[in-house]
């Protein structure tokens, strides 16, 4: 339940520390002062000061002086407030947006230095929490698409995904070609094409039966090349470049940038919302590609 505490770095997060400290100050200060006065209640003496001459409905008032401790602290605080207000604050030239910009700049330069050439394992690890924070709301923690509320990512990026695309068509990535129509070829042919694309077109290069690949190649030329080009590279951006299909590149450079208006529903563009940077795009794409769509068996 409190496992999250382990993830918080109290040492460097001054603010978290302050928040926690505040917690104790409240209890301690109140308990201390209340205790002090409770003790006074136990003291025998009633106040020796003279009573005021007025009396309201039986209530009198002593002419006691203001308690010194209270007055001194009050006085100090007023002086402090005056100083802070007239000198401390104006001289500090503080601005909350300035503070934010500094925070972001510091983070970015550190981040870039460390991760601009991150290796696969680092990217994958980075991608995991990004996926959980930003994608799992739609795709589910495991990427299964939550009963069809978003794409089932275990199907994406391999033969199965291509077959599904051929069966249902595709739309929403916003290529000049527009939509890919559904049902271009029958299921048997689709399977062959899928094997071919994954084995030869996609740089994922998943081995497939040579004979099937050859048949798939012919079918691809007949049914797909008109849009994706003979080489499947998408004819200079007219349609998706299938050599990137099944690799992180497709997700990082196409899906996350454009979003996807699909059959199941829509996915917004993460470029527009600006919630992630490009390295994080690659990281989450790497995570999906290696953990969900292509789990190493």
């Amino acid at each position: 339940m409190l496992g999250f505490l382990g993830k918080i770095d109290f040492g460097s997060d001054l603010v978290a520390l302050l928040g926690g400290l505040g917690f104790f100050v409240v209890v301690v200060a109140t308990a201390y002062v209340a205790g002090l006065y409770m003790k006074k209640m136990k003291e025998k003496s009633t106040s020796g000061a003279p009573l005021a001459e007025e009396n309201w409905d039986g209530i009198g008032e002593y002419k006691n002086d203001v308690p010194t401790g209270w007055f001194v602290v009050y006085f100090i605080l007023i002086v402090w407030a005056g100083w802070y207000w007239l000198a401390g604050y104006p001289l500090n030239a503080y601005s909350q947006i300035g503070e934010y910009n500094d925070e972001v700049r510091a983070h970015n330069s550190k981040f870039e230095a460390k991760y601009s050439n991150a290796d696969h394992a680092t990217l994958k690890a980075m991608g995991e929490s990004i996926f959980l924070a930003q994608c799992a709301q739609c795709h589910g923690q495991t990427g299964d698409g939550m009963n069809g509320k978003a794409a089932d990512l275990s199907k994406w990026g391999n033969e199965e995904g291509i077959m599904a695309t051929i069966k249902n068509g595709a739309k929403g990535l916003g290529f000049p070609m527009g939509e890919m129509p559904a049902g271009l070829v029958d299921e048997a042919t689709a399977k062959k094409i899928a094997t071919y694309v994954m084995a030869e077109v996609s740089t994922a290069k998943k081995a497939g039966d040579a004979a099937v690949v050859a048949e798939g190649k012919a079918a691809f030329a007949a049914s797909c090349a008109s849009c994706h080009g003979e080489d499947g590279k998408g004819m200079n951006g007219m349609a998706p470049d299938l050599s990137t299909y099944g690799t992180p590149k497709f997700i990082a450079e196409t899906v996350l940038v454009k979003g996807k208006k699909g059959h199941i529903g829509n996915m917004p563009s993460f470029e527009k919302s600006g919630l992630l940077n490009k390295t994080q795009f690659v990281a989450v794409a790497t995570y999906i590609n290696s953990e969900m769509s292509n789990p190493k068996k």
Binding site: C138, K149, G265, P268
Partner: peptide, 23 residues
């Protein structure tokens, strides 16, 4: 304040009907 950037019509439809089914 910027939910329009990262949620969409169909998402809201599912979600408003039954939030726990989506999240």
């Amino acid at each position: 304040h910027r939910v329009g950037n990262y949620r969409t019509t169909d998402w809201h439809e599912n979600h408003m009907k039954d939030p726990a089914a989506v999240v």
